[in-house]
């Protein structure tokens, strides 16, 4: 019996390693002032993917008041080697822009423009999907890899939440954040100072 078991052990081949394009281990938010100046960069990392460890979010997002920024979101999968397919998730999201949309939510009126608290709770609330070609999908619907923001005039503090929804076949001009599955949902502290 032992021989048999031993043989069984030997016979097991090494299975092929899967690429894991759906895993996002790192999300980077880069705020670039449109008038020039220092970028504000924050990241959320989850090196263990489906593992039990929680995501770590750095920040806070410290924005000078009354300044216009473009926000670019970069999603990476650290389990795939740099340059390999599946490493740059942002590119995939852009490619499949007609199935995706970023939604945003913030508190305490930290932005002068757009006003309000974001479009996560109500899809028709304003968010400025402009700033680069990947602000919209090829059909002209909002995508939001790049968005445009103007910080509030006064010193404020709140939270900033980014949600990426996957809406295959269900994305429409009016589809909101209740539609589709969530690919990304991260929350940062934000300060206007």
């Amino acid at each position: 019996m032992l021989t048999v078991l031993f043989m069984a052990t030997c016979a097991t081949e090494e299975p092929q390693k899967e690429e894991t394009p759906e895993l996002i281990t790192k999300a980077t938010l880069t705020f670039t002032p449109s008038g020039g100046g220092a970028q504000v960069v924050v990241t959320a990392t989850d090196p263990d993917g489906e593992g039990v460890q929680n995501i770590t979010v750095d920040g806070p997002i410290n924005l000078p008041p009354n300044t216009t920024f473009t926000l670019a979101i970069e999603l990476l999968n650290g389990l795939v080697d740099v340059g390999q397919p599946g490493y740059d998730i942002t590119a995939e999201v852009e490619e499949e822009g007609q199935e995706h949309q970023f939604f945003f939510a913030w508190t305490n009126d930290v932005f002068a423009n757009p006003a309000g608290n974001g479009n996560l709770d109500k899809g028709s609330d304003p968010v400025d999907y402009s700033g680069a070609s990947n602000s919209k999908d090829i059909g002209g619907l909002n995508l939001g890899i790049t968005t445009t923001w103007t910080s509030a005039a006064s010193t404020l503090s709140g939270t900033f939440r980014v949600v990426l929804k996957h809406q295959p076949g269900t994305k429409t001009p009016v589809s909101d954040a209740t539609v589709g599955e969530t690919d990304l949902d991260i929350t940062f502290t934000i300060n206007v100072q």
């Binding site: 048999v4 078991l5 097991t12 299975p15 899967e18 894991t20 759906e22 489906e50």
Partner: peptide, 19 residues
């Protein structure tokens, strides 16, 4: 029991042989 490659996900259960 084998995972057929190409799922592009870390397999939910590993490969195994059993007697």
């Amino acid at each position: 029991n084998r995972n057929v490659p190409g799922t592009q996900r870390i397999p939910f259960i590993p490969n195994y042989t059993s007697f």
